[in-house]
Design a protein around this nucleic acid. Structure first.
Length: 633
DNA sequence: TGGATCGTAAACAGCG
DNA sequence: GCGCTGTTTACGATCC
C-alpha cells in the first residue's frame, strides 16, 4: 500500500538525512526536516564531514583571501613606489587561485546546494567582508596619498628650487578624486537604497557604511578604482610611479569583464589579453606582456598555475565573472532566476557584462539528479519574495511574504520544471494554481496530479506521498469544491473560502501590514511592496499609473493572491468598506455539464451562482490568474 | 504557551 | 482483489 512512500519519503528516508539531501533544507516537518531547513549549514557541520556548504565557505574564503591580497598589494604598491621595480606585477588574476580549484562550486551548484536564505546570508557575509576590504583599501590609499603629499611638500620645502608643480598637483588631484570616488559610490549606494545617509551628511566615512553592499556595488567600486588609474598613470608618466602596478587594476578589470578577449601575438608566442572596454585605453599595459601571465604560467603570487596561454586565464576570469554576476543579486533589483541574463544586465555591469555573458552563462540549474528541497531554492533567491524572505523560514512563509505564486511560477517555470526543487508553496496554493490555470477553472484529480508532475520535477518523485497530500488538501480545505461532472468529479476553487482561510498571512510581513493599514486608501503602498509588485510578471503592475488609490485594491488582487487576501481582510475588518460577495470573488467556473441533481450543500458556494455573478463585476482576479498562465503553458 | 497552519502518514469507504 | 478517489484522523513541526 504505502510501500512507495515508505521507501521514497524524502524526509524519513535515511539517505535524505545526510549528505546533500540534508543540506537541501528539507522544509517539511517530521524527522529532521524542519530543523535542517532552519540551519542546513549547522546541520551539515553536525554531520562531521565536509559539507558542500563548508566547501563553499572555503571557496569563498579563498577568494576573499585573494581579494585581500589584491587590496593589500595595491595599497603597498601605492606606498612603496619603487619596491616593485623590475618585479613581477604584484597583482594577478585572483581566479587563478580561487577559481581553479578542482572543487570549484559553480553558481548553479551553489544555488542547488544552498537555500536562498543561506545564499543571502552568504552573500551578505561576502559583501560585508569585501566591503570592509574595500574600505580598508580606500582608507589606506587615502593615507598613502596624504603621506605622499606630505612627503612631496616636505621635499618641495627642502628643495624650493624644484617646483612642486605637477607632482603635487597630481597628488592633490588623486586625493580629490579618491574622495570624489567615495562620495560617488556612497551616492550610488544611497540611490540604490542600500545606504541611508543621515540628512545633511554629505560625506560619510566609509567605515560607517552599512555592510549591505551588493556585488554590483563592489564591482562598481572596482570600476571606479580602475577609472582612477589614469591619474596614477599621469603621475607615473611624470616619473613618480605611485602605483608600481598600474595594470593591476586593469588586470583585475580584465578578470572582471574579461571576454570577449582578443589574443594578440606576443614575441614569445603567447598572447596578451585585451578587453574591449572603452576605458581600456586608459590602462597602459605594457605591450607584449601581461602582468598576470608570463612564461606559460599564472603570475598571481603563490599560484604559478600552468596555463597554456592567456586564454586559459581568460576562461578562469570568465568563471569568476560568471560567479560574480551570478551572485549579483541585490534585493533592490530582484531578477527572476529564469532570466539569468538579467542578473548581469543591471546598470553597474551594463557596459561590460554584455560582453562577459554572450550566452548568459549562469543558467538556472536545469537538472538535478539529487533531490533538492530547500525552502526557497534557486529562483526564489532572486524573486520578490526574497525581498522579505531572509533567514530560515518554512516554505509556506513565501506566501506570507506576499509571493504571488502565479508570478513566481511564471518567472521560474522552467526552473521548477527541471530542477528537483520543492516549490515554496503549500499544497493548497499549488492546487489552486493548477485549477485556476485551466480555462474552465476545474480539474480532475488526475489532472491535478498531472499538473504537479508537469510543473515540478519535485513531484515526479514520491508520488504516493504528495498525491495523498493533494487529496488530503482537497478534502480538507473548504476552498476546494468538488463538482460532479459528466466526465466525473472535478475540483474547483472557491476563492472566497480560499481567501478566508488565510487572513493570518498578514502577520508575515509586519511592515507591510503596518503600512497598508496605516496608509488606508492603499495609496501609501510602501516602496518595497511596490517594488515587489513591479517585479512581478504582470505588465499592468509595472505601470505606475496602476498603483493609485482607486485601483490599489484591485491591483492588489492582481498578482498577489496572498496580498489580495490581505487587502480583503483590511477591507472587511479594517475599514468596513463594502465587501464583495463570496461569489463575486470566485472565479468564473464553467462547469461543463452540471449534474441534474444539486451539488452537496455542505459546500458553501454554488458554482452556478459563481458563474453567473461574476458577470456583473469585472473580475480583477482574472488578471491575476490569466496573465501568468500564458507563461506557464 | 496555545492556536493556527501545514505536511505527512494512515485508515477507511465507495466505486469501477 | 486491486487501484483510484475521497474523507477523516492523528501527529509533529513551525510560526506568531
Amino acid at each position: 500500500m504505502m510501500v512507495e512512500s515508505a521507501s521514497e519519503t524524502i524526509r524519513s528516508t535515511p539517505s535524505a538525512q545526510n549528505g546533500v539531501s540534508s543540506l537541501s533544507n528539507q522544509p517539511d516537518g517530521g524527522g529532521g526536516g524542519p530543523g535542517g531547513g532552519r540551519d542546513g549549514a549547522a546541520g551539515a557541520e553536525a554531520n562531521g564531514e565536509m559539507s558542500p556548504v563548508e566547501l563553499l565557505h572555503l571557496q569563498q574564503q579563498q577568494a576573499l583571501q585573494v581579494a585581500r591580497q589584491f587590496l593589500l598589494q595595491q595599497a603597498t604598491g601605492l606606498s612603496s613606489p619603487s619596491s616593485n621595480e623590475g618585479k613581477q606585477p604584484a597583482v594577478q588574476v585572483p581566479v587563478s587561485v580561487a577559481m581553479m580549484s578542482p572543487q570549484m562550486i559553480t553558481p548553479q551548484q551553489m544555488q542547488q546546494i544552498l537555500s536562498p536564505p543561506q545564499l543571502q546570508a552568504l552573500l551578505q557575509q561576502q559583501q560585508a567582508i569585501m566591503l570592509q576590504q574595500l574600505q580598508e583599501y580606500y582608507k589606506k590609499q587615502q593615507e598613502q596619498l596624504h603621506l605622499q603629499l606630505l612627503t612631496q611638500q616636505q621635499a618641495g620645502k627642502q628643495q624650493p628650487k624644484e617646483p612642486l608643480g605637477n607632482k603635487q598637483l597630481a597628488f592633490q588631484q588623486q586625493l580629490l578624486q579618491m574622495q570624489q570616488l567615495q562620495q560617488q559610490h556612497l551616492l550610488n549606494l544611497q540611490r540604490q537604497g542600500l545606504v541611508s545617509l543621515p540628512p545633511g551628511q554629505g560625506s560619510v566615512p566609509l567605515q560607517s557604511l552599512p555592510q549591505a553592499v551588493c556585488p554590483s556595488d563592489l564591482q562598481q567600486l572596482w570600476k571606479e578604482v580602475t577609472a582612477a588609474q589614469p591619474v596614477e598613470d599621469s603621475i607615473k608618466q611624470e616619473g613618480l610611479d605611485l602605483t608600481t602596478n598600474t595594470s593591476n587594476s586593469t588586470s583585475f578589470s580584465a578578470a572582471k569583464v574579461s571576454p570577449p578577449i582578443s589574443h594578440h601575438p606576443l614575441p614569445n608566442g603567447q598572447s596578451t589579453m585585451h578587453t574591449p572596454r572603452r576605458d581600456s585605453s586608459s590602462h597602459e599595459e605594457t605591450p607584449g606582456s601581461h602582468p598576470l601571465y608570463g612564461h606559460g604560467e599564472c603570475k598571481w603570487p603563490g599560484c604559478g598555475h600552468l596555463c597554456g596561454d592567456l586564454g586559459t586565464l581568460a576562461k578562469e576570469s570568465e568563471r569568476l565573472q560568471a560567479m560574480m554576476a551570478h551572485l549579483h543579486m541585490r534585493p533592490s533589483e530582484p531578477k527572476p532566476f529564469s532570466q539569468p541574463l538579467n542578473l548581469v544586465s543591471s546598470a553597474t555591469l551594463s557596459k561590460s557584462t554584455s560582453d562577459t555573458f554572450p550566452d548568459g552563462l549562469p543558467h538556472p540549474p536545469t537538472s538535478a539528479t539529487a533531490p533538492i528541497t530547500p525552502l526557497r531554492q534557486g529562483p526564489s533567491v532572486i524573486s520578490s519574495s526574497t525581498l522579505h524572505n531572509v533567514g530560515p523560514i518554512r516554505r509556506r512563509n513565501s506566501e506570507k511574504f506576499c509571493t504571488p505564486i502565479s508570478s513566481e511560477l511564471a518567472q521560474n517555470h522552467e526552473f521548477y520544471k527541471n530542477a528537483d526543487v520543492r516549490p515554496p508553496f503549500t499544497y493548497a496554493s499549488l492546487i489552486r494554481q493548477a485549477i485556476l490555470e485551466t480555462p474552465d477553472r476545474q480539474l480532475t484529480l488526475n489532472e491535478i496530479y498531472n499538473w504537479f508532475t508537469r510543473m515540478f520535477a519535485y513531484f515526479r518523485r514520491n508520488t504516493a506521498t504528495w498525491k495523498n497530500a493533494v487529496r488530503h488538501n482537497l478534502s480538507l480545505h473548504k476552498c476546494f469544491v468538488r463538482v460532479e461532472n459528466v466526465k466525473g468529479a472535478v475540483w474547483t476553487v472557491d476563492e472566497h473560502e480560499y481567501q478566508k482561510r488565510r487572513p493570518p498571512k498578514m502577520t508575515g510581513s509586519p511592515t507591510l501590514v503596518k503600512n497598508m493599514i496605516s496608509g488606508l486608501g492603499y495609496g501609501a503602498l510602501n516602496a518595497s511592496y511596490q517594488a515587489a509588485l513591479a517585479e512581478s510578471s504582470f505588465p499592468l503592475l509595472n505601470s505606475p499609473t496602476m498603483i493609485n488609490t482607486s485601483s490599489a485594491s484591485a491591483m492588489l488582487h492582481v498578482g498577489h493572491d496572498d496580498v489580495s487576501s490581505t487587502v480583503e481582510q483590511v477591507n472587511s475588518n479594517g475599514s468596513n468598506s463594502p465587501r464583495l460577495s463570496p461569489q463575486q470573488y470566485s472565479h468564473p467556473v464553467h462547469v461543463k455539464e452540471e449534474p441534474a441533481e444539486a451539488e452537496d450543500d455542505s459546500r458553501p458556494v454554488s458554482l452556478m451562482a459563481t458563474t453567473n455573478q461574476n458577470v456583473t463585476i469585472p473580475d480583477d482576479r482574472d488578471l491575476e490568474e490569466e496573465l501568468p498562465v500564458e507563461d506557464l503553458s
